[in-house]
Amino acid sequence: MLPTLNGRLQTRIFMLVVFGGLITLALTPILPGDPDYKTTYIILATVLVLGIVWELIYHGIQQFRWEKDWPTMFGLITALNEGALVWLLLDLELVPGIDGVPDFWAFLIDFSVIWFVVWIWTNGPMRVPFIRWRFFGGRII
């Protein structure tokens, strides 16, 4: 990825809304612990909101790279820090709108599947419908 800050934010929002939204819709009924849609979508929104802050940090880190690129691998391993933070907040019951602590495996499965699909899509297929996307730092509009 060769993102600009604007492109990062747009891509993040687009991916989580489209793929996050669809995957959560499909997975919620079959997740362990039987979570309701309200819970899973609030978690998705939490990932999105925190993600915007994370993108600012990643953009800062990127400035230390001569190439101003964001290696493919980084796009996958940032799931660790982001996922850990979201779970920490859930575990401490700091996420508004969710009562109690949701099932860990439900969170892990939903989060991992979304992340992996988004990562794959970002690193290839996205370029098929949006031919300008990769040349404009990941901007969609």
Binding site: L2, K68, F135, F136
Partner: peptide, 10 residues
């Protein structure tokens, strides 16, 4: 530098 083809430097 890689980002001239689509990222920050471009």
């Amino acid at each position: 530098p890689k980002s001239v083809w689509g990222g920050q430097l471009k």
